[in-house]
């Protein structure tokens, strides 16, 4: 089995890029692969807890928690999050926060790196 590192910079609501990244993570984990998901820039919005599941807006907290329980490692850029006021108190449980070098280190052992930019 391989390791996939996904970086996503798009915000939670809007482009559906984060939805795609989470669905791809789910598919890879289902097949037995290891997945590191890194969110930076506006993508750090994914880390906020208590997302209310309106039908008109992407809400990924529930699938994300299920994936984390299955072994998904998901990490937010700490500086990007703090710059947006997404501090530790509003971060969902299990969501890691590191500096950008964590993402680069994850690519070291990755078989594939999929980088999905921001808006």
């Amino acid at each position: 089995m391989g390791k996939l590192t996904i970086g996503c910079f798009a915000s939670l609501v809007g482009s559906l890029n984060l939805d795609f990244a989470v669905k791809l993570s789910a598919a890879a984990i289902e097949k037995g692969h290891t997945v590191d998901l890194w969110v930076s820039g506006n993508g750090t919005m994914l880390s906020i807890k208590d997302q209310r599941p309106f039908k008109d807006y992407s809400h990924l907290e529930k699938p994300l928690k299920e994936l984390m329980a299955k072994g998904l490692t998901v990490t937010a850029c700490e500086a990007c999050a703090e710059a947006r006021g997404y501090n530790k108190d509003v971060t969902m449980e299990g969501f890691k926060r590191h500096s950008m070098d964590w993402y680069l280190a994850s690519t070291f052992s990755a078989d594939r790196v999929l980088h999905i930019g921001g808006e």
């Binding site: 910079f9 500096s99 070291f108 930019g117």
Partner: peptide, 26 residues
């Protein structure tokens, strides 16, 4: 924000070794 994030992530290679085994780098 993309160009700035490209640059800041690239610059972060300077400290990547703290996560890696000795001799490994990005």
């Amino acid at each position: 924000e993309n160009p700035k994030l490209a640059l800041t992530h690239a610059i972060a290679t300077q400290s990547v070794e703290v996560y890696l085994n000795e001799g490994d780098t990005v």
